[in-house]
Design a protein around this nucleic acid. Sequence first.
RNA 1: GCCCGGAUGGUGGAAUUGGUAGACACGACAGACUUAAAAUCUGUUGGCCCUAGGGCCGUGCGGGUUCAAGUCCCGCUCCGGGUACCA
Length: 958
Amino acid sequence: MNRVITPQSHLRSAVSSRHIARAMEYDFKAIETKWRAKWAEQGTYLTEEVEGMSKFYVLDMFPYPSGAGLHVGHPLGYIASDVIARYKRQCGFNVLHPQGYDSFGLPAEQYAIQTGQHPAVTTERNIERYRSQLDLLGFSYDWSREVRTSSPEYYRWTQWIFARLFEHGYDNAAKKARPISDLTSTLESKGNDGLGWAVGEDTLKDAGVEAWGDGFDGTFSAAQWNGLDPAKKGAVLMAYRLAYLADSEVNWCPALGTVLANDEVVGGLSERGGHPVVRKKMCQWMMRITAYADRLLEGLDTIDWSDSIKEVQRNWIGKSTGAQLRFAIQNHADLQIEVFSTRPDTLYGANFLVLAPEHDLVTDITTEAQRKSILAYQKETAARSERERMAGDRGVTGCFTGAHAVHPLTGDAMPIWIADYVLAGYGTGAVMAVPAGDQRDWEFAKAFELPIPAIFEGHDIDTGAQSNKQAVLCKSGKWNGMTCAEALPKAIEETSAKGIASPRVNFRLRDAVFSRQRYWGEPFPICYVDGIPQLIEDEQVLLPDVDAYLPTEDGDPPLARAAQWNVHHGDRMEYNTMPGWAGSSWYFLRYMDPHNSGAFCDRAKSDYWGQVDLYVGGAEHATGHLLYSRFWTKFLFDLNLIGFEEPFAKMINQGMILGRSSFVYRIEGTNRFVSFEQRKEHRTQRLHVDISLVRNDILDLEGFKAWRPEFANADFLLNEAGEYRCGNEVEKMSKSKFNVENPDDLVDRYGADTLRCYEMFLGPLEQAKPWDTQGISGVHGFLRKLNRLYRNADGHPLIVDTPPSPEANRALHKTIKKVTEDLDRFSWNTVVSALMIGVNELTEANAHERAVLQPLSALLAPYAPHLAEDLWEVCGGEGSVVDAPWPKWDAEKLVEAEVTYPVQFNGKVRFQFAAPAEATPNEVETMVLADDRTAKQLQGRTPKKVIVVPRRIINIVG
RNA sequence: GCCCGGAUGGUGGAAUUGGUAGACACGACAGACUUAAAAUCUGUUGGCCCUAGGGCCGUGCGGGUUCAAGUCCCGCUCCGGGUACCA
């Protein structure tokens, strides 16, 4: 039965009293305020190097200070790392636990464009808000070490590292970065033949053609080098620098007015904002991260990160080994097509070539008869690529060029096609198609009715391609009868000997674009003298003020607007700024020596603090920050500026906290809302409703009407209970979904200690989990119960100095053991359970002895530092609980006189059997076999076998 | 498609090397207190059967190894995340 009710008839609201009665005996507000002030006053969390003391470096990924503030999901990782920082400190380590802000970035700039407000001002305001929210939670950060990537004192050193990258190249033979001055002296004496430095081939080719004409093939002699003018030398050197300027295809985002790095583009859309991204040729600063591809790959084996994130990096780097093969083209003696293949062993099965539609040679080789259709296909793919990427549904398309290549082993003619399944940006942008061995080639051959030469024994080529490396080859000359795995190295060797191929390693990893056409980022310490970029090192290049945060009318980036600034000693400045990941690639080093004005970080300090021992943050930075910071760390290591080449020895990625959204159901075209149960009887729209108006899924009707003007006149179709029941769903926590739980409110209602414990109690840190505020009461109750062990309701201490009972001792030492072991394996959630069990047992045992309660407060300190500090004081503990030595468990106190064994018969537990703890398995067996209950279970049968697992279980088989 | 996770009560989760599955909480139910409600406290709470004693079933599904399987092996299903014509 449904009732339509008016607002007046429903005065009793389900949510009217949300007040949580606060039991006065646990006055968390007073306790937390008191100790936060004391810690600040005494500088409890300031850190310095102490010779001979072992260090432990615990780091959070620093936040971008957005305007929205924190919700309960944000502090999760911070709480986890704080627990470990405090635990390690109590264990006697010198702990470095800093925090800062990744404060350059797009949102502040977008806001500036809209409002004219300087990004520095909004950033400052957001940081203040962040800081006040963080402070409420009682973190043990040493704030004297705070860094902000947008402060000139910090970005000066970001610029400095950029300058070093500009001044260095990469020597593949030495496997390390070396100064460009080393390079020039080699070039002066030997030229670049056999040089072995990482080089941008396209950049070198362009510069070489400019210097020596069209015949330039990539090598030059010492004489040729020495004959160049400085401008041409500069252009050639650019091809070797680790930070270099290049014309390249970049991801241009028109809506953001800037280029993006590959990891900032997701499925053809910008990661931030989801705007379309197009390919465009532009002159940009780049980072030669590809020079470090192998070391970035190998280094993964030396660090303790999750397998999944290592795998993401491995795939992103995408190393593949094979050969580069050269194919002659009929009627084009001067041209050849190079293809990269990981499977040269299947070369005999190759019967056509496929080029990317954008491949350079397409125009040259296309016959007149095919020209029209080739042009049409190229146009079609260029137009389609974007839309089609989003659709994800692609058929097999392609077009014949009319040209033929020559098979290097058989001399057969191979038609040359173009197709969009071959990507211009990978390998050489051309493939040799082996339809019998590659499914894409197979499908292409089927679609265009090309023959499929069979090269595998016993494989039916009509069923699809065979890519198994254990397959046996046939019709493959000398390789007949070999498995592919056996033939592969031979194929590479033989084709290389014949001069038709060279061994080749290919990476999917691209060099990273390092310029952004934005205002709110690090300016480059670069000006252009006669068009050649020069480092500015005599003074720091500061970010100038501008009159608007938009490009100039000529399309130059905003910095071109800074009239005095944009010219340095008469030379044009670089107008681009650095990307967001520049400052975050090395911030973990600056914390070690944050105020050093003579160096980015003193070597002695980085030697002391070393690698980050525990890094906590989200997994979403796998291909961005976490790769770039590894790259910069290796570079700084090569320059002998730091003593380690992996920044983060261990990393744990916290899972997302999801919100529980509530929904109301509006009958379409009306202002009438129907309760969840009856929603299907009407045509309804589902609308998010703010979760503060909902309790146990029941809507606060008055609150709802007051929430938004358009709902002021809403009426409701209630359920049989006379209530409005909301629907719900677990989804990402977000303001727009009205499912955000704010930590400030929870701290106000339950205290920071409760919130800290509860966030850890929710479940394993790495897992995504829904937030459920109801559960917090259980954790709050635990802290109150714990508090009651130490003092009564009036706050009078209950501590006594009598010796504890064996039960109390056992409870304490069991808890110490469990908490210690769980913290050592980073099992944050089970620690809270262990403490709860301990408190339950001590309450049961009526334990108020100092010998038990004082260590207990030390044990609590990492999770609930405020209350622990207060209770430590009640116990008369010396100094701060922050430095209380971590309690050790005493195995003797854990021993029980008896062990209760579950006794199984054929694997089913039938009864419990108590045996003396010190009894041997044989004695236990004898005793249990003598027990009446055993005889009853056996009913006269003789046991075949008796298994006694000491202190665990007894299983009687028979 | 490929690669990584994961699936345990009404819910979050525990079980660390194969050894009593469901710890610890939440919720629900019942009781105490209260004029009443909230709060608080106590008890019950995987399912099924049973007067009791107790029994049977049970960790996504189907097999297997073992004295013993949530845990190991083989074959699936579903869910989450990442990634993609990468030659």
